[in-house]
Write a protein that binds this DNA or RNA. Structure first.
Lengths: 348, 348
DNA sequence: ACTCTGGGCTAATACGCATTAGCTAATTCG
DNA sequence: CGAATTAGCTAATGCGTATTAGCCCAGAGT
């Protein structure tokens, strides 16, 4: 079986007895205002298109400066194959729904550089994303050079999550971690806690910074001064003695940057015979765990992941629709407080 | 910021003081045999490529008949991400690993037609897959017209799972369900069972047919005759009386096409006070459930999903590498028997 | 001196489409 | 009735690349 040459616009034109330009115009519905094609001709073209099973060549379309209505999705953290258990799942749901609404097709990219298993956009001197009109980026990367290159290439992309490059904000849809973290601090304080401790990893990214800032804002609003003493960054397991020391020192509430850390604290407390929230309170700054173990009894706030995904697509669409060169856009979505059951009154 | 025009091969050529053709030849490493480029010139070109941050345009590359080294992955069952079903996970893992090995980039396509939520390749008169050199297809579709069109378009694709079109075999990597099912039948018989019942849904696809054929082959080898009585196809829940009737009728072993059905039978047995394998035996024709609940205690066979995914990529690679028009290729992988604990001796 | 060979390159073309300047015939206007 | 307008279309060009026929030149062979 010979690999048949697919019909092109020229074939259509010939069959319909018109010029190739007309075919393009009709197919792209450009027969408006300035340019006019009689509706009979349009019908004839469409008829031939159907008869010949014509499908436009997306590569040619893109090359000629048109759009192929494909959006790429790239995650730096390995999210492929996607599993509903994955942290990124809700983002993807939002992305897909909005893409469907705006009639875009989606391509989830995956490419791992063989050596270190890290994911990168550019490889073998090639950027696979560019077959799409624009892309949504997810997850963290250490390699800011890639983003930098993508940006200087003028490739349209939107990040899910706040992301800055050389001090300049990129286009993104972020969660308002600052306000949400402040809210948590105030919520904890409203239960009578006057000494709290922020715990997080030493490796920092934008969202970690935002959380810390929210924490600081909260303390400030409450008129507290001992902020420096109230932030701890460790990566290793927390020793039991450490926790006891903190408690002895008068700390009554722990605010963990991640749910995971919050869990650990609670478990550690159990080992020491302390229970939450009777003996001490714990809150997390966002439901950062897997989608599947979304535990409502933990005091935290909910990251609007679906909405963020959808928002990113909208933003990208907006950028693509605007022929002018858009500025960097930022959009923040509010997080919802999830009271849970791990924050209680101070033990008297 | 102006959307910068990216450097093209012409820019490289100018900067390196050579013709554009040389740039293309060097970049694609075509300077061999007939065509020769001095290594100094090659070095010079590469240097300029690096200096100017040149990245080839994949659309142009594809249009010009080259390859862009992208493989598509399309699933008819929605694997991305709504109603995600883990069943496909191992396939995707295999695909990703082999793609990595062969240095292909992967794109997971997703597109749902808005109306009925079904997934289709062609939409809005466009075939998104074609931006990739070729594609791997997963999952079942009722709409054979899509496959037919894809094939007549000459688009290179490989199915994971046996798939035929108008009686003709497509290119695929399948599991040898026939042999495996036969093996199960013989395994069951080796425990003394002489009357078994094949249970499956009425909606049939290729793999269902293969399983039934394997069942028949097994019976034939054992010299049994009552095949007609031994196959039941129902979609609704099995009533308790039905199960009892079968048992009273002398059926001692149930062979379910899916693990789900096997589960149901066991549960139903429990309700009736019967236990497996003491009162009756149950086996399934393949670990068809989600990857997450892979239960080793069920007697079944294991579908080599990872290997199938990898095999599909290899096959596709082979097709793409062969400039001639390849015939349809089929590849079958063996399934491994998983004895489990649900088949025992006949109750005397 | 003349052809032959082959290395190293260039010019030209095609891929399939979108876009735009203009062209022609029909219609309207003054 | 000539000029201006407009509807409906065509011709030409460019997008960035791969491919191929063929050109030029140096050296070898006779």
């Amino acid at each position: 079986m010979v690999r048949k040459r697919r019909p092109t616009q020229i074939d259509i034109a010939r069959a319909a007895g018109v010029s190739p330009a007309v075919v393009s115009l009709v197919i792209n519905d450009r027969a408006n205002g300035k340019i006019r094609i009689s509706s009979q001709t349009q019908d004839r073209v469409w008829q031939v298109v159907r008869d010949l099973d014509y499908v436009p060549n997306l590569a040619a379309r893109q090359l000629a400066g048109g759009r192929n209505h494909l959006l790429g999705v790239f995650t730096f953290d390995s999210a492929f194959p996607v599993d509903y258990n994955n942290f990124y799942y809700p983002f993807l749901v939002g992305i897909e729904q909005m893409a469907e609404t705006l009639r875009y097709d989606l391509m989830l990219f995956t490419r791992t550089s063989g050596e270190d298993g890290s994911r990168r956009i550019y490889r073998d001197g090639t950027n696979a994303l560019q077959v799409a009109d624009g892309s949504i980026l997810l997850g963290g990367t250490d390699d800011r050079a890639e983003l930098s290159r993508l940006k200087s290439d003028g490739y349209p992309f939107v990040y899910v999550g706040r992301r800055e490059l050389d001090g300049e904000q990129l286009t993104y849809v972020g969660a308002d971690y600052v306000s949400a973290s402040t809210e948590i601090v105030e919520y904890v304080a409203s239960h009578g806690h006057t000494r709290s401790l922020l715990m997080g990893p030493s490796c920092r990214n934008e969202s970690s910074h935002d959380r810390e800032q929210g924490f600081r804002v909260g303390l400030e609003r409450l008129g507290r001064r001992d902020t420096d003493d109230s932030i701890v960054r460790i990566d290793h397991e927390i020793p039991g003695e450490q926790l006891e020391a903190w408690l002895d020192d008068g700390i009554t509430a722990f605010i963990a940057e991640s749910v995971t850390t919050a869990f650990r604290l609670i478990e550690l407390g159990k080992v020491l015979g302390k229970s939450v929230p009777a003996d001490f309170s714990v809150a997390a700054l966002g439901n950062t765990g897997n989608a599947s173990d979304d535990v409502p009894w933990i005091t935290t706030f909910q990251i609007p992941r679906r909405e963020m995904g959808a928002g990113a697509v909208q933003l990208l669409h907006q950028i693509l629709s605007n022929p002018a060169n858009p500025p960097n856009l930022q959009q923040f979505l509010a997080c919802r407080l999830q009271p849970g059951e791990t924050v209680g009154p101070v033990r008297s």
